[in-house]
Design a protein around this nucleic acid. Structure first.
Lengths: 183, 183
DNA sequence: CTCCTATTTGTCCGATCGACCAAAAACGGT
DNA sequence: ACCGTTTTTGGTCGATCGGACAAATAGGAG
């Protein structure tokens, strides 16, 4: 009933996500987002609401990207190492927006609404817990700081990729994680 | 000759630096910066020029902050470890802007002018080289990835502090660096 | 073919953006 | 006391911000 939508809502959400991913929250205007999605600002607003709500939807549209990296084979340290390797390979290729939407958003955390702030920090914590749980399920025990150290190297990988660090740097950070897990 | 300035230029530069440090480049308007410095936008513009030039001056005003962390006693790994400990202690206290102006600016690198982009990346590289040189001057050799791994943990420390990570996380990242250097 | 409904489109709002400027104000030199 | 010089002040510029609206448009239902 009524005029049908001329666009695919999920595709628009991905375009908006990629725009936020590329240039962050504040630097993107509503018109930038609409332009990136190939529709008018009126359509964006009618379908998705305000800018901060759009960012919330962008976070949701980003979930498949960063939870898919959790879904690797193996268990314990092996699974963790494969996760780090997968992250490295993704950010090192240079196609798509650089770095990680979540970590970049965490760096401009004060610019967000309370609701989005919680949503961002919750996702950061999900990464941290994924790392900790992989070490917990491993039979051999580890020094208490190891989990957050590996988590830190994940943050480093995503932060360095964001500013366009040399491939060597990214590789070395990955290798550092390997040394900590197996060295 | 002429009417004297009512403000201290260096103090204004520090106030502007702190404003950029707190909320980044794009999120701060000229009026925000003027307000933070306690002067009018006209005075800001007359004395320091455009917004991107103001950011360049903020980078200069930040140099004492992050080069002072280089100036610790000891040599080699000991000096590097003390550097990491000093960084940890600084970002863990919670007073002053969170995280690091340079690393935060590197995360919104695309929002800056070419000149400021180079200035930001140069400073990131200075940190990386400081780490590498401390390991180079150490008699015992290290795996080739160690320097960038420690550099990555420095990035992680500053990134985690920026979003307000729990003190435990910051401590564990520091302890991870210690384990890599001495473990 | 005509009506009903939902979307698209173009436009407009008040506010704010970065930047700039003329006028008022505050000093030192004479 | 007056003048030349510099800064401060308050206002203005065109552009753009996030957000909203009425009118035009494009389908399905009857």
């Amino acid at each position: 009933m009524g005029r049908p939508r001329s666009f695919d809502g999920a595709a628009v959400a991905r375009d908006v996500r990629d725009a936020f991913w590329r240039r962050g929250y504040t630097a993107n205007s509503i018109r930038d987002l609409a332009s990136a999605a190939g529709i008018k600002t009126g359509s964006l607003h009618a379908s998705f609401g305000t800018k901060d709500r759009l960012f919330g939807l962008a976070l949701d549209a980003y979930d498949p990207v960063f939870t898919s990296a959790f879904e690797v084979e193996d268990h314990g340290r092996d699974r963790l190492m494969r996760y780090v390797e997968l992250l490295h390979d993704r950010v090192a290729t240079g196609d798509g927006p650089r770095g990680c939407l979540i970590v970049a958003a965490a760096s401009e955390i004060d610019d967000h609404t309370d609701e989005n702030r919680l949503a961002i920090l919750d996702r950061v914590e999900r990464i941290r817990k994924f790392v900790a749980e992989r070490l917990d399920e491993d039979p051999e025990d580890a020094p208490p700081h190891l989990a957050d150290t590996i988590f830190g190297l994940v943050l480093a990988l995503l932060t360095a990729a964001r500013y366009g660090a040399a491939p060597d740097v990214l590789r070395n950070i990955r290798d550092g994680a390997r040394a900590l897990l197996y060295g």
